[in-house]
Design a protein around this nucleic acid. Sequence first.
DNA 1: GCAAATATTGCACACTATGCAAGGTTTAGT
DNA 2: ACTAAACCTTGCATAGTGTGCAATATTTGC
Lengths: 196, 196
Amino acid sequence: MTLSLRQKRRQETAFHIQRTTLELSEDKGLENVTTEEIASASGVSTRTFFNYYPNKEAAAVGHPPKFTEEQKDALRNGSGPLAAEIKQLLDQHIAKLSAREDILRMLGNILKSNEKARGILEGYLAEERRDISNALFDRVGNRQIAAALAINVSSAIGGAIMLWEHEKELSLHAALDVIWEGTMGASRLLASPVDQ
Amino acid sequence: MTLSLRQKRRQETAFHIQRTTLELSEDKGLENVTTEEIASASGVSTRTFFNYYPNKEAAAVGHPPKFTEEQKDALRNGSGPLAAEIKQLLDQHIAKLSAREDILRMLGNILKSNEKARGILEGYLAEERRDISNALFDRVGNRQIAAALAINVSSAIGGAIMLWEHEKELSLHAALDVIWEGTMGASRLLASPVDQ
DNA sequence: GCAAATATTGCACACTATGCAAGGTTTAGT
DNA sequence: ACTAAACCTTGCATAGTGTGCAATATTTGC
């Protein structure tokens, strides 16, 4: 994972463009910002902008953090209670997201109204779910159960972000705890033979 | 829910345009079909096309079936085991979808590659989840648990469709059964104190 | 049968996104 | 340092998307 100078600079520019895109959209909304505005505010030509991102919305979404191989291995090879290990994975992921709360907040606004941006993010999340689902399959030995668990993982993250955006006094971590409680509660309700 | 002649005709045209859009995309892919092609193949002007749908992708997605008020009320007021009632709701919904298997199949292909279409569908699903979540909240009295259950409902439908597209010999109903088994298995795993 | 309501259309226009080719910059090897 | 290869940036041309507006056509209720 060592990057050449060239690659490093490219990554920085990509980041810079994302920031600029989000900042420009903050008041006007992404729809009312032209790619030309974003490009020149970022100090590149319009043509170069499209060299970094295939479209405006992709620039806004950027490249969300992924689960690392270590995290997936931990899930694969763990031996403790599954729920606890999943929660740990979620905590780690939320910690990564916390480092970029400003971006998260600006992006949240865009996702509410922009269908294309939502679709792009959904694509990343689907990939994430596939990853987690594969790791969990190695652990639990059943494809459908692994897939259902993966959905709980990725929607807990989404849920935590949404709750955090909504409730100003909650930290991302606290929001995750609340959401996870809900996930566990739902599981108990579904698993239990009687309606509680 | 009685429609005037005008409204009925409008609805039919909207349907017709969706069909045409999907059929034209079937070989070339939606990206390589122009709105002008779709419009003239549908027998309307380009301008009128945009009068029915805000964009190509929305025309492809159309207006997916929603849960009815009766279904939501049944969920709200039911008294049997929750899992069984949710499963019944899912069966009813899948029955509706089965009536349009051709559309479902064509749409599935588009969703794989088209981000905007995915975002639009995701928007409908989010609305659906909100609806179900509200109904379930009235039943279980806890917002987060209701939300987590709603996620299981809407992703079971999505999962069933994906499985059905993948496994030619499965009917939609059968696919749902398989997915639902996975959902229940995941719940038991999460709820149980020991790793099975 | 007629006025009001609603639909369709053409046209102009601003914006998105891509291919291509010219020119500039970085890199690695000598 | 020098140079060739690799890589980046840019401008320009162009096809396509989507909207506002105003004219025209059609449907509806009375």
